[in-house]
């Protein structure tokens, strides 16, 4: 049975119909990608799953629990999210220690010391970072802290919203490797949202292409590598990700 089941999801913000009937299933331990350009509704799908955007129509179930307006404490322990901009996702006045100990305090963990140190080690930061403030860290280091914060509750599902698009290429590689390793070690389930087909191809076994709030098509990694896209839009995306080709004329 699928761990995450999204069927006919609609999200409306007042007049704006951001997601128009998207369905997909993600199995336990799978890494699923959502690709699209800005305004395609790809991030809104993630936000609807985690409760930051309303589910206007349709059903979303995570581990058999159908999600309503209110999310249980257990839900937060099962599912966590990493945001796009590491400069905006950490509280500017909280030390790393505070960032990591807060979720433990909310959920009443007792061995906080050990868990914080383990989380720092796991994301490759080391203990020297524990009492620093976010402004003392680089973008990549901040994103590692955000990953540690998400992992410290030992969730089964991680929602990754463009986790590397604000980072330099070399830092992106490090963070992608970290996410890959953590998934292998902990058997995590990922839903990764990105505008970069190469990142999704590298990280995910299956992916959904979205445009204008609708699903265009679902592909496997093998399809993508074979360039076996059925829809024109996907083919455009694939062509664009190759870089610039001067020979082609637009008219």
């Amino acid at each position: 049975m699928a761990l995450i089941d999204v069927s006919d999801l609609h999200v409306r913000f007042g007049e704006v119909h951001a997601v128009r009937g998207v369905s997909f299933r993600v199995a336990e331990g799978e890494s699923y990608g959502i690709v699209g350009e800005s305004g395609s509704g790809k991030s809104t799908v993630l936000r609807a799953i985690c409760g930051l955007a309303p589910i206007s129509e349709g059903r979303v179930t995570v581990a058999g629990e159908e999600l309503g307006r209110r999310r249980s404490a257990g839900f937060h322990r099962r599912l966590q999210m990493v945001f796009q901009d590491p400069y905006a996702s950490l509280h500017p006045r909280h030390t790393i220690d505070r960032v990591l100990s807060e979720p433990l305090a909310i959920h009443g963990f007792d061995d906080r010391e050990a868990r914080i140190l383990r989380a720092l080690d796991e994301v490759g930061l080391g203990r020297g970072f524990r009492f620093r403030y976010p402004h003392q860290l680089s973008g990549g280091q901040r994103q590692r802290v955000a990953i540690a914060r998400a992992l410290i509750l030992e969730p089964r599902v991680m929602l990754l919203d463009e986790p590397t698009s604000a980072l330099d290429a070399s830092i992106q590689a490090e963070v992608l490797n970290l996410l890959d390793r953590l998934r292998a070690e902990r058997g995590l389930t990922y839903i990764l949202v990105s505008h970069d087909l190469a990142v999704v191809a590298h990280m995910c076994e299956r992916l959904l292409v979205m445009q204008h709030g609708q699903a265009v098509e679902e592909l496997t990694r093998a399809d993508l590598r074979a360039r076996a896209a059925r829809e024109t839009y996907t083919r455009d995306l694939l062509a664009a990700s190759e870089g610039y080709r001067p020979a082609e004329s637009i008219r």
Binding site: A169, S170, Q172, A173, E174, L176, N177, D180, R181, D196, L197, A198, V199, A201, H202, M203, R221, L224, R225, L238, S241
Partner: peptide, 15 residues
């Protein structure tokens, strides 16, 4: 260190 659609090394070589 750039990921590729064709698939490259895993883990990605870091700089």
């Amino acid at each position: 260190c750039l990921p590729r659609i064709e698939g490259g090394r895993r883990p990605l070589p870091v700089l």
